[in-house]
Amino acid sequence: MEIEKEIHNQKFSNNFQKASVNIIYTYNWLNGFIKKELDKSNITNQQFNILRILRGQHPKPTTINTIRERMLDKMSDASRIVDRLVQKDLVKRSICEKDRRAVDIVINENGLKLLENIKLEEAMTKSFQSNITEEEAQTLSNLLDKFRG
């Protein structure tokens, strides 16, 4: 549906304002979609992001700083989120053998199994494919990269 109909606004100053509003609206729509999927597994979007980062490093441990650098949401408190993942028994934290001041974080089997059971990418792909083609998805991705340019 067109952004004008979604937000009941027919007046934009220009197409740049319209595109900006559309990006913000779409971000919130997509975030709601992701939240609904992840609620089934009782984890947040930020927790999911960290688990995916750790899975990419597995079996090697990583540090909080590396996690912060790779997170999609740079405003998240990675240390606090890792604490919650430790409490949920999805990751393990230990003192780094090379630098006793640092802490190593590694995803455990429970975390890997949880990620295996979350079908977020499949749900998103299915949702997108019903509205846009693969070529359009590539064009959209390229335009968003250019927008952040």
Rank of each mutant, 00 (worst) to 15 (best):
N108L: 05
T66Q: 14
Q47W: 00
A102C: 14
R100P: 14
Q138V: 15
S127A: 15
I105R: 07
D89V: 00
N131C: 08
K40P: 04
G56W: 01
F147S: 04
R101D: 12
L144R: 01
L54N: 08
Q47E: 14
S130E: 11
C96D: 15
K126R: 14
N45G: 07
S141Q: 15
T62W: 06
N45D: 12
H8Q: 11
Q46C: 08
L90V: 00
S13D: 11
V21N: 03
T66D: 09
N49C: 07
I81R: 07
Q129H: 15
Y27W: 05
K88D: 01
V106N: 09
T63Q: 13
I132L: 01
I24Q: 07
K60N: 15
N108K: 10
M71I: 06
K146W: 10
R100F: 11
I132K: 01
E2L: 05
E122K: 13
V106Y: 09
T133D: 04
V103S: 08
Q47L: 02
T26Q: 08
F12H: 04
V82I: 09
K35W: 02
M71E: 04
R68W: 01
N142T: 05
S76H: 05
H8K: 15
G149E: 10
F147M: 07
N65L: 04
I24W: 12
I53W: 01
I50R: 00
E134S: 13
S79K: 14
A123C: 04
T133A: 00
D89H: 12
N28M: 10
F128H: 00
K126T: 13
R68P: 03
P59R: 04
T133W: 10
F147V: 10
S76M: 10
L30Q: 10
R93G: 08
E116V: 13
I24R: 09
D89R: 12
S79L: 12
E37S: 13
R55K: 15
K126C: 13
Y27V: 07
L143G: 02
S41N: 10
L120V: 00
I95L: 13
L144E: 05
F33T: 03
H8F: 15
S127N: 11
A19F: 14
E37A: 01
N49I: 03
E134H: 06
I95Y: 08
D73M: 02
T133F: 07
N142C: 03
N15T: 12
D77H: 05
V103G: 03
I64G: 00
Q47F: 04
A19G: 08
N110H: 13
A19L: 12
Q47A: 07
N9H: 11
